[in-house]
Design a protein around this nucleic acid. Structure first.
Lengths: 246, 246
DNA sequence: ACGGGTTTGTGAAGCCGTGCACAAATCGCG
DNA sequence: CGCGATTTGTGCACGGCTTCACAAACCCGT
């Protein structure tokens, strides 16, 4: 909306202001969900979608969808809705998915193997560009069309494969050291599966995925709900069969 | 502490709610992080901890720690700090981790195998009580000391193993059906790894873990940061070597 | 062309969460 | 026994996010 006229004369100095003013973090975290829903809708043959329908598919309220989309200067048509194809392209543009991003998997253990074999990367804008491990016994192992390289070669690997994101799937004890080496190699985005807090310089982005934490949060609500059978009898506390939503 | 929660969305009355008035969701989601940090601290030999130290270990601000802990009627001692052992017990109590919770893994594919082999369950209050799949070829397979059972036996399995939480690691197409069957079997907490939105009845809690979404959020920040080298040269955009403070 | 029905975009209000700053409480030590 | 150092617990203000409600914009049939 407030499309910035690309300064033909150029900004005088230093300040490289991006196109979008500043996208709220909450919105950013929902854009991928919209994107997923939109692909689903597109595959179903719909070529336009209302905020109401999109909201239902993404599991949020319609007002939120509209405000989110308006943030990125959206092209919706009143009385009609949004063009699915246009919206997909818009969101992919904003998320930086127009160019495929290469990720490196550090730690080819149980979880690393599973992620390497997960097919969901390619269809969502990513590609596994490197498998890395510290264990010499694992180096050289082939998975698909990739060969596990040693972590000592990380800088070369990052440069050669243009790695944009590092995914840490090592044991906890190794995670911080791996993060340090990733940062030293120039990686500025890290997805951490190890259950620990990583220290990184300013300007490096870290997101954590901790299975146990998710389970514990679920446990809290379960516990809160389930007062009444102190000695865990298998009391079946059946929820009402009413189905939420669309 | 006598601060009363103004009933907003909650039921007007009737449910005799236990000790805790109403814990903010943001606090709940941080308690597991505190718990992890506390175990770490306890293992280091510390028997008391200040909010400042705990905040550093959990990666948050100290004021937030104090406010969070005060929410659950904490037993801190001014001028000293918190007793680590007491705090651990308090948090485990609130999270309902005093009794070990059994989880069922539905979908013994790549990811399912990885999670089944993940050792982090036992030490964090959970136990895999069942492995379930729909593929007859997989039923009967042994992993560790568990045997994969068929999903048609889900109700019996849930009852026999006192399953509290279902973890969905199936392909997307199967996820909703699995969720329905989990709910029908009496499970009221679901951790969903399939990239889709699940419809469940009121009273059932669902949490989603989507790898691609996390990557896309990282991609956004990477994209936003990385204006200036359009043809992705491996320009090392080194952040200041300053380490983010403890 | 025009009116009715539909849907977007957004101003405004309310809620939640965060962080500061400080009084109250506790310990250690002289 | 009292004083200073330390740390908790919390009132308060601020900012961000969510939701409602509604005017503006648009399509379509007549």
């Amino acid at each position: 909306m407030s499309q910035f006229p690309r300064g033909s004369t150029g900004p005088p100095d230093g300040v490289v202001v991006p196109d979008l003013p500043e996208l709220p973090e909450a919105t950013v975290s929902r854009l991928p969900e919209y994107l997923r829903a939109l692909h689903q809708i597109a595959q179903a043959g719909q070529d336009t979608v209302s905020s109401e329908a999109l909201a239902a598919a993404a599991g949020v309220k319609s007002a939120k969808v509209r405000k989110d989309l308006s943030q990125l200067g959206s092209y919706g048509t009143r009385g009609v809705g949004y063009e699915v194809a246009v919206l997909i392209e818009q969101i992919e543009q904003v998320l930086g998915l127009t160019q495929r991003r290469n990720v490196a998997l550090i730690g080819v253990g149980n979880l690393g193997h599973a992620l390497a074999g997960y097919g969901g990367f390619g269809s969502r804008g990513f590609r596994i560009g490197a498998l890395v491990d510290a264990d010499p016994a694992r180096v050289g192992e082939r998975l698909g069309d990739l060969v596990v390289t040693h972590i000592d070669e990380l800088p070369a690997t990052v440069a050669a494969e243009q790695i944009a994101i590092g995914v840490i799937t090592t044991p906890v004890v190794a995670a911080q050291a791996v993060a340090d080496r990733l940062v030293a190699a120039g990686v500025t985005s890290i997805l951490n599966f190890a259950p620990c807090v990583l220290s990184v310089p300013d300007g490096v982005d870290v997101r954590n995925v901790d299975l146990a934490i998710e389970l514990q949060i679920l446990s809290f609500h379960e516990h809160r709900r389930g007062r009444g059978d102190p000695d865990g009898a298998a009391a079946v506390r059946r929820a009402a069969p009413k189905v939420v939503g669309p």
